[in-house]
Structures are given as structure tokens and as C-alpha cells.
Simulated assay, not measured.
Amino acid sequence: MITPEFCQMMARYNAWQNEQTRAAAEKLTEAELRADKGAFFGSIMKTLNHLLWGDLLWIARFDGGAGPDVGPDEGLEMTPTLAVWSAERFRTDGRIRQWADKVLNVDLTGDITWFSGAQNRDVTVPVAQAVVHFFNHQTHHRGQVHALLTAAGQTTGDTDLVFMPEDQKWL
């Protein structure tokens, strides 16, 4: 289904998009970042926090490192400011890239099992499916943030994978 090269490309894409998101979000006031805009998680900050929380949860499943210290509800407030979020986001994106740079074809085979607090049971899925979900989850929620930032008058730049600066061969 997927390859190490796919994981590396998507890890680069994730970091690129998060940097553009950060730059656009920095132009907003704290009140604008925290205002409930009727989105699924309410505000830009809560959505950014959910995205970070989810990334920490999934990368911990893949690399065996630490996951988030809080549950999904508390995860919406896991960073108190955009500056703290930005630092955590940078570290997490580096961790994701390190994992992707080391992943082998064999690592993407077989099943992965974890206890799902949301479902209150063990869940087992193919590793490749979990990795695709991981990257899709990022893109989905960043799309929500993109819409909120655009509605707030900000521009995040290109979001198409084919325009990723580190991957000019796509052009």
C-alpha cells in the first residue's frame, strides 16, 4: 500500500504545511486564535492543539516514544499559547521526519494493536492503514485550520503537494 518514500514525502509535506500555518496564525491576535468560529473543535487554537495531540499519539504508536500527557478533551488546551504550540509543533514535526527517514518496508507490514480510549477496547489494523490514517488525519484537520485562517483574512500559501519546495521533481 505505501512505502518508506511515501512516509518521507508526507512527513516533509506535514512540516512544510505546519510552518505555513504557523506563519499565518502568528498574524492573528490571541482573541482571534481562541474565538469559537463554529468549527468542529471551535477555535483555531483548539484545532491546532487537536492536530498536535493526534500527531503525538500516532507517532508514539509508530516509534515507541512518549505520547501526549493528556486525553483528547484536555488535548484541545494542551498548549497555552501559539508560541508554545509552535515550539511543540517544530519538535513533533522533527520527530515525525526522523521516524519516516528510518522506516523500512518491513516496518509497514503486519498489524499494529493499541488500546483505544475512545472505543474502550483494543484495536488492531494493518500498519500501512494506520500510517495512511496518520497522514490523512493531519491533512484533514490542517484543512479545517486553513479554512479558519482564510476566513480570518490570512493566507497560508500553496497547500498542494506538487508545489512542495523540497520535492521539485513533482513539478
Rank of each mutant, 00 (worst) to 15 (best):
A87Q: 14
G67H: 07
A35Y: 01
D158S: 15
D55M: 06
L104G: 13
T29P: 00
H146L: 14
H141S: 06
L149F: 04
D55Q: 14
R91P: 01
N136H: 13
P80H: 12
E26V: 04
E32S: 08
V123R: 06
I96P: 08
E30H: 06
K27V: 04
A25D: 04
G65K: 13
V145L: 07
D73Y: 08
G157C: 08
V162Q: 10
V131F: 02
A35M: 07
E77R: 12
K37M: 11
T29G: 15
E74I: 02
T124V: 07
T139P: 03
H137Y: 10
G64I: 10
D158F: 07
F135A: 01
G143N: 09
D36V: 01
Q129H: 13
F41G: 00
W58K: 01
F90K: 13
T150R: 14
D107M: 09
A66Y: 04
T113L: 01
N136D: 13
F115W: 14
D111M: 10
D122F: 03
L51S: 12
T124D: 02
V127K: 13
E19D: 15
F90P: 00
R142S: 14
K102E: 15
A152P: 04
R97N: 10
V125D: 08
R22T: 13
V84Y: 01
K102F: 03
I44A: 03
G42I: 00
D55V: 02
G75L: 09
G42C: 01
D101R: 12
D160C: 02
P126Q: 14
E19L: 14
V103Q: 10
T139G: 06
P72D: 09
I112L: 15
V106E: 15
G64D: 02
A31V: 14
D158G: 13
Q98F: 00
T47E: 03
R89S: 13
Q129S: 14
A83I: 04
T124Y: 02
R121L: 00
E88C: 09
Q98S: 13
D63H: 06
K102R: 15
P80K: 14
A25F: 06
E77F: 11
G65Y: 11
Q154R: 15
F62Q: 05
M78N: 03
R61S: 06
R89N: 12
D55T: 12
I112T: 09
